[in-house]
């Protein structure tokens, strides 16, 4: 089976570990070989959280620079930081709602210009899907559902070997009962946003 390599980056607390878990469960459900790794030591203290997910017949659980087929980012400046994981054939999905690091919020650093960032990513990769995932998550009922919005956009690309139905089933069975409806709605909004955009 062909290998698909996906990197997810986020800021601690944005819920990317749950997003990875949903994809892992959906892969188990689909009988697709999956291996993932994550670094989450100091995440709760405001650092960057990165997950690597490898679908198909590979043994490695991590992804080298330039070798991600897909980059999903929960935060626009982190998209730029992780861009060296991509090559010119990679597809990038990013939330456009910034979560500026503390140095920026107190005026000691400059946050990259979002329009310029998108132009650069478009120029360097095969496709960019960029939208405000926080807005859609809020629309779905909770700002916490940003992860599900982005999973929806990811499903729309059809690059990972998982069906939309299996990801939805994993959301139903692996996320908190009280959040399932919101999560499914968020997933759907993300899917539609990716269809419309870029």
């Amino acid at each position: 089976m062909d290998i698909t390599r996906l990197i997810i980056v986020a800021v601690g607390g944005q819920g990317n570990l749950l997003a990875s878990k949903v994809l892992g469960e959906a892969a188990l459900l689909s009988g697709v070989p999956v291996r993932m790794s994550e670094i989450h030591g100091m995440a709760q203290r405001g650092g960057v959280v990165e997950s690597a997910i490898v679908f198909g017949n590979a043994e490695s659980t991590i992804i080298s620079n330039g070798e991600a087929d897909l980059l999903v980012s929960f935060e626009p400046s982190e998209t730029l930081r992780a861009l060296n994981r991509c090559n010119k054939k990679s597809v990038v999905i990013t939330n456009l709602s910034p979560l500026p690091p503390f140095t920026v919020t107190i005026g000691r650093g400059t946050y990259p210009d979002l329009a310029e960032a998108q132009r650069l990513i478009r120029e360097k990769t095969a496709r960019l899907i960029a939208f405000d995932a926080v807005k859609l998550a809020t629309l779905a009922g909770s700002v916490m559902a940003v992860n599900m919005v982005l999973l929806g956009a990811l499903a729309q690309t059809r690059i990972i070997p998982l069906s939309t139905e299996n990801i939805q089933t994993a959301i139903q069975t692996r996320t908190k009962k009280s959040f399932v409806d919101i999560n499914l709605k968020a997933f759907q909004l993300g899917l539609e946003a990716a269809e419309k955009g870029s």
């Binding site: 730029l80 310029e116 650069l120």
Partner: peptide, 11 residues
């Protein structure tokens, strides 16, 4: 040519 990205150290 990517602009400098502000660091995000744990705090």
């Amino acid at each position: 040519d990517i602009p400098e990205i502000p660091q995000r150290p744990p705090n």
